[in-house]
Design a protein around this nucleic acid. Structure first.
Lengths: 200, 200, 200, 200
DNA sequence: TATGAATGAGTCTTCATTCAT
DNA sequence: AATGAATGAAGACTCATTCAT
């Protein structure tokens, strides 16, 4: 009998189980309100059993986040490989962001904020910074291309990319603290595109 | 004997004392990590005494926040009354925001996020929404004036105002979760102005 | 209404209650095997209530010990004031020790050993050292008097006093680890007296 | 294939490994503070594996102690065979004891006390009692010889021997609970010799 | 024999909340 | 109004012991 990637060891399966249960809790309650006991209960495992795998909620959360970013890295990669027009790709990107902003997906956003409010992490080890930088990189490339082929106004592509990401970040937070509606998000996303694109 | 605004009752003084001590704690630790006991200890009052004034940390925080917004409302008002150029006023406004983004002042930002992540409040009662709307209103007016007197490009003034506020919100969060530096903030604030202003 | 030494405050009474319950436990089980929960249960108070008075078993034990030594100080004092013959006083002293050696009294001996095995304390703050030194002092005085009035052989009174105390200490430990019988203790106490006293 | 004393079975080797690791722990922490888990970790063996050999820390400690006393029995034997003067031999014996009294590291003394405080064992099965009796036997013989050849004062040799052992026991405990210094130990050992020996 | 995952009981500690004074 | 002692629930963490493999 042999093992391959899909045949995980019993131990690895339990790890997955824990991370899955914990992820669900973090999505529902953020980071602060999840205790080790909550995770134990949610996963149907024993108190001591959880401690075999993780020492505290922080470690669990980081691991959940790591898995998450693995997945999202792939998404970003595929987005660019397409042969579509720059505006279309950016439009697709923004539509994806809209889903997350409006919490149409199970989202770790609040938990992530709460976690990093308390855990200061050097820039190069910080996963949100990493995600942010990755998105900025992709956007910068797209904007540069848009400028080159005359779709977009002349501008500093990197500053523009960062600007878009900050707007999105701002809306994510706003959606979870004040209540903003879909209309406002749509308006902003259109504003972003309008600001970039040469009007005919 | 009579009471006027400057002659606070003993009870009112104690209330102030509590709110002052609590504010300090919320600034230092955010909302989640402050307990009723912490506040009791910080204020040097009795455990039971605190409960005569407030039932839980949430109520205390809301009150702290209410006092806070009273003060800031005045700031916004005075900004516009000036006779300076639109660009100058917006520049002043952004400089103020920069301070808050970079946490150069004792700031309730994190506590506010944490509080409202957990407490969903209808739009018209929500103090951050109120603050946001007030800022948008001021900015909209300024941008409209800028467009009218030819300083700014033609655009939807309200959308532009919201855009600016979302960028600022995004940077506030980013400053507290990833570590962004002053340079990046400056770059973004310049980018905002550049996007608005007609270049000569 | 006024307070005097016998009218303790409610809080002081509770403290006494805890110390009494804890003392009983320490006598029965030594130091290592007594937990905060044990004390809570023994005293019939609440879990949190205990922590209002003491932070850990070590603190409680030290306090128990402090009270204990207050009492024993008085005993030592009174022993000497008597006008009896030196040999008689020493005989009385040894008879007292015999009781403790053979555990005929509720005794903190084992708990004390266990506590100080783990807690290294500078000589001048160490209560057993203090007790030991006090006993040595008294004995030294007695022996010196015995030598002066010809009851005892010539010798170094201090070394002799220490010797006696070490023998007693040795028997205390032996009584609790190997099982030694009363006969052996009697034999030793007689040996001590014989070694000192001039035989006629 | 056959086994002899030098060819230990795999199982016996593991036993040794456990006992060696456990001994180290008992020396460092006494008996109370060593858990089965500690031993597992220190020996690098499996949790279940340890239970194949021993059921609890008490059993392990007794076994450690048994090996220990095997070694020390030999020492006592050789001491007497010498042709030296009685005083010299006793002097040598006391010097050995001094090492043990003052030896805080690599010594099972504290662990032994702690173990036997909790485990009452009939006199004839009790290893410390056995060690004590063996030492008393040797000393008794030496003292008797000393009296016979006029080196020592007339006295009850057995009582004197026990007295010496109790003083030593007392100093062992004192060294680990109050902090006594080397000078005091030296003074006592000299006092013991002086009390025995005829002065010229 | 050997492994180490799993369990659950047990202890420590903190805190919101109440209540007699 | 004000105090602070008291309570008990809740969460963190550890460990002896078992058991499937």
């Amino acid at each position: 009998m042999y093992y391959n990637q899909t045949m995980a060891s019993k131990s690895a399966i339990k790890r997955q189980l824990i991370l899955k249960g914990a992820r669900q809790l973090f999505c529902e309650r953020g980071f602060c309100d999840v205790t080790m006991k909550d995770i134990v209960d949610a996963c149907g495992i024993s108190r001591g059993g959880l401690y075999l795998y993780f020492n505290n909620t922080g470690d669990i959360f980081l691991e959940v986040l790591r898995l998450e970013s693995q997945d999202s890295d792939e998404v970003y990669g595929s987005a660019v490989s397409d042969g579509a027009s720059t505006a279309k790709i950016i439009g697709f990107f923004l539509k994806e962001q809209k889903k997350e902003i409006l919490q149409m997906t199970d989202s770790l956003t609040v938990a992530t904020y709460e976690y990093f409010f308390k855990h200061k992490i050097p820039r190069d080890m910080n996963p949100i910074r990493h995600t942010y930088d990755a998105a900025v990189l992709v956007l910068t490339g797209l904007i540069r291309r848009g400028i080159e082929n005359g779709e977009f106004y002349e501008c500093d592509p990197k500053a523009a990319a960062r600007n878009i990401m900050f707007v999105i970040e701002g809306m994510k937070v706003a959606a979870r603290t004040m209540d903003i509606d879909q209309k406002m998000v749509d308006q902003q996303l259109m504003y972003i595109v309008d600001t970039l694109m040469v009007q005919d």
